[in-house]
């Protein structure tokens, strides 16, 4: 760590001397300009946070912290609680990642490491096409194809095989948390795949050649490449997670839209983004609107926290593998 810092210092010292001698003016300008751009992102984030909080201040004052663990959402009686929506958002996104991450990493590894030239382009094109489909189409596909398949075949099979687990109990409607998670998985798959593939392809070939020359198998070589690309892969997964948390249309069409907390993946659930989209137009009184905006604020915070946790998780895992490698 200290040697790294030293090297950075040396480098910036060199840069400074260099810029002093020649393009001093334009360099300073350029640095300031890019710093402004970077800062604008921060300002935008803080500004959004403040606007959300200001627009939700009545609801914040009225419900306090109780909003976070309230379980009732009753616009008629002016009772608003966010817990079922937070639960639905986190569980559906987690489910989506559990399905999508292994799949898309597999596809990306195949494309960058093992696929014959012609294949690579075809599959990559198909994956990119998946990313371009509007979410309402995914939703319709969910209602008319996925949900009947789940109801008639997959959920009954899950119930009869793993029915002893609370995850797979209750009547199989085909609509619910499982359908929502699967739709989300399909939607985030192209993003994670495309970014991971680019990251893996950016790994210098010398890495692969070095591993192979030491007598490593294809699998061992791939592991070396993965270790080299871990930071980029983390970014890919987090991008996918961002889309899963914020997705509205497709999820609301298949998740059942019922603000209840249930362990079973067969039961209907509801996400924050969906309830905002569904109820904002017809929110007929001020407190109702404010409660929905407060949900937006919570979505914002949930995204921040989940991102931080995901980074922490990946960081701790990669650090361990680095130590193992060193040994």
């Amino acid at each position: 760590m200290s040697s790294l810092a030293l090297r950075d210092n040396e480098q910036s010292g060199l840069m400074a001397r260099w810029s002093r001698s020649r393009h001093r003016w334009s360099d300073v300008l350029f640095r300031r300009l890019t710093a402004c751009f970077a800062l604008s992102i921060l300002i935008l984030l803080v500004w959004m946070l403040i606007t959300l909080a200001l627009n939700a201040r009545q609801a914040l004052a009225r419900f306090g912290w109780g909003f976070l663990w309230g379980r009732t959402w009753d616009p008629v009686r002016e009772q608003f609680g966010a817990l079922p929506f937070v639960y639905g958002t986190i569980v559906s996104s987690t489910l989506a990642l559990c399905i999508a991450v292994p799949l898309s990493l597999g596809v990306a590894i195949f494309l960058s490491e093992h696929a014959p030239r012609g294949w690579e382009n075809v599959v990559a094109f198909l994956v990119d096409t998946l990313a371009a489909i509007p979410s309402v189409i995914y939703g319709l596909w969910g209602i008319f194809i996925l949900s009947p398949a789940l109801r008639n075949y997959i959920e009954p099979w899950l119930a009869s095989t793993f029915g002893f687990l609370p995850l797979f109990q209750g009547p199989p409607y085909g609509i619910g948390m499982l359908a929502g998670g699967i739709i989300l998985a399909i939607m985030v798959l192209p993003i994670i795949t495309a970014v991971s593939r680019d990251v893996l392809q950016a790994v210098p070939n010398t890495q692969r050649e070095a591993a192979l020359s030491l007598g490593a198998t294809r699998w061992e070589t791939t592991r070396v490449v993965l270790a080299h690309a871990r930071a980029g892969l983390t970014g890919a997964v987090i991008l996918g997670l961002g889309r899963a948390i914020g997705e509205t249309m497709a999820v609301t069409m298949v998740i059942g839209n019922r603000p209840e907390i249930s362990y079973s993946l067969f039961d209907p659930s509801y996400t924050i983004a969906s309830v905002i989209a569904n109820e904002f137009n017809e929110a007929t009184y001020e407190l109702y609107v404010q409660a929905l905006i407060e949900l937006g604020l919570i979505l914002f915070l949930v995204t921040l926290i989940v991102n931080a946790v995901a980074r922490l998780l990946v960081w701790s895992v990669t650090r361990r593998t680095r130590e193992v490698q060193r040994v």
């Binding site: 008629v76 009686r77 409607y173 059942g256 019922r258 509801y270 569904n278």
Partner: peptide, 16 residues
């Protein structure tokens, strides 16, 4: 339950 354009439904699932 009461009246309104959105209510707290005692049963079932929601379609958009």
């Amino acid at each position: 339950v009461g009246r309104g354009t959105s209510v707290n439904w005692p049963a079932g699932i929601g379609g958009k």
